[in-house]
């Protein structure tokens, strides 16, 4: 019964939200606004699920002595930021802002910057012209990479136009094909969910 109720609610809201898209009637706009507001409220609650899941996973990993310091640090971060925000606020000069600007932002930028080193290492060890297809891919990537640097035009006047051609023709054709495929896939999945054919979102058995 509870599954049928969920499927019924899903069908009704799916049809309503589909239909209101094509209507400018004030009632349709009001329904749309109300549903969107509830969507945001429900989403905020999912963040709590994320926090609970992180805490559960951290406590489980803490059983391993070598992982314990990292898990404690993670949990301290999780707890301290909301506490700092609630006690001193989030304006400039508060401890929350200090932590964000001097701990979180530099740490994230550091981790992201490490990518440059991994790319350098991978380019030496992994990017091999083992076949004709790999050689074409490598050539195209090199032209695009060079054209994005300010030295592209210095190496050759032909380089920027060739890079533009690659971006505007083969690259865009492939991207369009992927995007159209994603669009059709989303449409099919949505219809399957609204009509109750696809039921995996309910969890448990498909029946």
């Amino acid at each position: 019964m509870d599954r049928k109720l969920a499927l019924g609610i899903c069908f009704i809201f799916g049809v309503i939200m589909f239909a209101q898209y094509f209507s400018q009637h004030p009632m349709a706009r009001a329904v749309n606004q109300a549903v969107l507001e509830y969507w945001q409220i429900i989403f905020a609650f999912t963040l709590l699920v994320g926090v609970a899941s992180f805490m559960k996973s951290s406590f489980r990993k803490m059983r391993k002595p070598s992982d314990r310091p990292y898990q404690i640090l993670g949990l301290l971060g999780l707890i301290s930021m909301p506490v700092l925000a609630l006690v001193w606020g989030i304006k400039a000069g508060t401890p929350f802002m200090w932590m964000f600007e001097n701990v979180q932002a530099p740490m994230q930028a550091t981790v992201f910057s490490l990518l440059a080193f991994f790319v350098a290492s991978a380019s030496f060890r992994g990017f091999r012209a083992r076949s004709l297809q790999a050689a074409i891919l490598l050539g195209a990537a090199s032209i695009i990479l060079l054209s994005r640097s300010s030295l592209g035009g210095i190496v050759s006047d032909y380089l920027p136009p060739v890079a533009e051609w690659i971006r505007n023709n083969p690259s865009m054709a492939a991207r369009r094909a992927i995007l159209i495929g994603i669009g059709l896939g989303s449409l099919t999945t949505s219809l399957r969910v609204i009509l109750g054919i696809e039921r995996t979102w309910l969890g448990g058995s498909q029946r």
Partner: peptide, 19 residues
């Protein structure tokens, strides 16, 4: 820009050297 462009050239040279 200079740092990024130089890093691009460095990566390209590594690709050539690796091959």
């Amino acid at each position: 820009m200079l740092a990024q462009s130089t890093a691009h050239i460095y990566v390209l040279l590594l690709i050539v050297l690796g091959n």
